[in-house]
Nucleic acid binder design. Structure first.
Lengths: 110, 110
DNA sequence: GACGTAATTGGCATATTAGCCAAATAGCCA
DNA sequence: TGGCTATTTGGCTAATATGCCAATTACGTC
């Protein structure tokens, strides 16, 4: 892997890594509906608010969400809606896997 | 997060996590061109073959690639080309970030 | 069967991540 | 200013991921 290509791959991997956590995927889906303050997300997720805040920081640093302070709460919103398109593709991966597993089980005579 | 939704998010996160590594992104891009044996990929990447093999196992378990043993080598190919579409979206994230950073530096008078 | 090559697996050391608590920061209102 | 709420940050521990080496497995050839 050449120098330049490596740097580019690293940058991409960072964005993907930011998305690659169930709680952060949840946040992304919720923000796709509408903006939310940290307190609302925290209540939905059921974790410590500091944990949620750190997840949001990861998403922000990756460039996936924007924050907006209003009064003493901070509202987050999705910055890059196109990532939602990707979920359809991920679904197809999951479906393929499920089918394959079913076929395997059938072949095994169960 | 309800039980069912959580399971679904976990499954999605697993697929994303499998993609979220520079070496594995490299492999995905190479396999998008054409199938490759482990030895070829290893040479391109320049890591230990066991390391590459493990990366491929991660991609396989996530359902992203398929393997095909021929003779004493194993050829891998991309199973889900739609993930390539996503890279365009990731690029836009990276571009936005770059622009913002440039604006920030300019505002700071540099 | 013995040898060589390709690939996977096990094991280990190191690095990174996640989540909680406690402490600090920031804004609102009395 | 003091008290209250919302959020972020620091610090710690536990869990997970990475990459190498060594050992094993699988295949082809002699």
């Amino acid at each position: 892997m050449f120098q330049q290509r490596k740097a580019h791959l690293d940058a991409r991997a960072l964005v993907l890594k930011a998305m690659a956590h169930p709680t952060r995927l949840f946040i992304i889906e919720e923000l796709a509906k509408e903006e939310r303050c940290v307190c609302d997300l925290t209540e939905q997720i059921g974790a410590d608010i500091s944990t949620v805040s750190k997840h949001l920081a990861v998403l922000r640093q990756a460039g996936l969400v924007l924050d907006d302070k209003r009064g003493n709460q901070v509202f987050y919103r999705l910055r890059v809606p196109c990532i939602l398109n990707f979920f359809g593709c991920v679904e197809s991966v999951l479906e393929n896997r499920a089918k394959e597993q079913a076929a395997y089980l059938q072949a095994a005579g169960r």
